[in-house]
Design a binder for these strands. Structure first.
Lengths: 223, 223
DNA sequence: ACCTGAACACCGTTCAAGT
DNA sequence: ACCTGAACACCGTTCAAGT
């Protein structure tokens, strides 16, 4: 037997490869990782305390890999915030599992805390109180997480519906329009096309929603 | 053997009881439900197509159980929206698993579609376009879902940290402050107390975030 | 120090068989 | 029509045993 040594980095790399092929964090299993690396499942537990520790490492790696744009205090604070979130958003779009990963982990690393710190600093510099700043950043974060959870959920449901494994789910979206039509849910029907185009336009959607929120926030600063 | 007949309603009731004791939708298992009702696991599959179908039934039951306040077109549209979301929010607070349930299911029932329709109608009546209305309602929904996913995640992590099963997680929140202090993340430290009080004040937090968003939306309507 | 096989305690789902 | 036991194909995690 050739003595092949596996590193923690190789394990996270394999985990990322598996996630890239789709599926949720729940579906990422230690057994799949072990099979990909041709190691026993127990080997994983020598390198990581448990699955949670792997997720922490992965979430940190994702944030560390982001190239954040430079911002200066000369720029309007709204512009600074938008630039940073646009970058985060782009990353989440490339790696759709990233949002779920962030929700499932604690930002207890230097890299993740520094990002939160930077966002808070922009708002403090703009004249917001610590309370306002904290609320605003968390609200934006929740908005983005919710959007991604929704998109991830829809993608997963679509995959399960397309594979023969779950024909149950396949009929549900079709049922929506029928029910809406039968009950004369006119407002819903009027906006139905916008519902359906959701996935393609999620990037603009996030930025538009962010614009609305920042406009309301700017108003609050003046009063 | 006494011939005891189980109904679908009894199964959802048992499922709600299990969820009330805490835990995620993932942790709700058909085996736990079967044990609670003293039936075989396979019996579940006679009453429901699969676990997804159970979740659909549960999400519908939750929305059906909400007593929505009456709103009239005489009220300002922001007031109408706030009243409805306050009610939804209160329900999600009582049943913390409700938000996760909504994210995991398709609103393909009359009761859930009628709620979406009502919210959209308020915005259409206020003069927003279908595009704007759809974006606004989805944004608010994502914001609320993200907030609840965050709270649910934090509660779950706290439970796992408190039980001896996962001491790994217990040390992470403590680590946060140490790292922030070591790296002079001043903005983070300044708002740290607000982070920690999060759970108690999540209700006000949601309403405050909603206020900001609605203020931005109102502004958009005038331009 | 690093890796393993085998086991434990869980999952969702199916299916032939019972009444 | 309704329910069952037993099986299948999965999980995360542990642990004594190997090198």
């Amino acid at each position: 037997m050739v003595k092949q040594t596996i590193s923690a980095a190789q394990i996270t790399a394999a985990a990322f490869e598996i996630m890239q092929t789709g599926g949720t964090v729940e579906q990422l299993s230690i057994r799949k990782i072990a099979a990909k690396l041709h190691i026993g499942v127990a080997t994983f537990y020598w390198h990581f305390e448990n699955k949670q520790a792997l997720l922490q490492a992965m979430s940190d790696e994702i944030i560390a890999g982001i190239q954040f744009p430079p911002t200066t205090t000369a720029m309007p604070w709204t512009k600074q915030i938008k630039l940073i979130f646009k970058t985060i958003y782009a990353t989440y779009l490339e790696q759709p599992y990233a949002a779920e990963l962030m929700l499932r982990t604690v930002p207890a690393t230097k890299i993740r805390l520094s990002l939160i710190n930077r966002l808070l600093q922009i708002l403090l510099d703009a004249g917001f109180t610590p309370e306002q700043s904290n609320l605003a950043i968390e609200s934006i974060d929740h908005f983005m997480s919710g959007l991604f959870a929704d998109i991830a959920g829809k993608i997963e449901m679509k995959q399960r519906a397309l594979s023969q494994t779950d024909p149950y789910l396949a009929q549900l979206p079709l049922k929506m329009k029928t029910i809406a039509a039968d009950n004369h849910f006119d407002a819903f029907l009027k906006t139905f096309e916008h519902h359906r185009q959701q996935q393609q336009h999620s990037a603009e959607k996030f930025m538009l929603g962010l614009d609305i929120f920042l406009a309301g926030l700017e108003q609050q600063r003046h009063s």
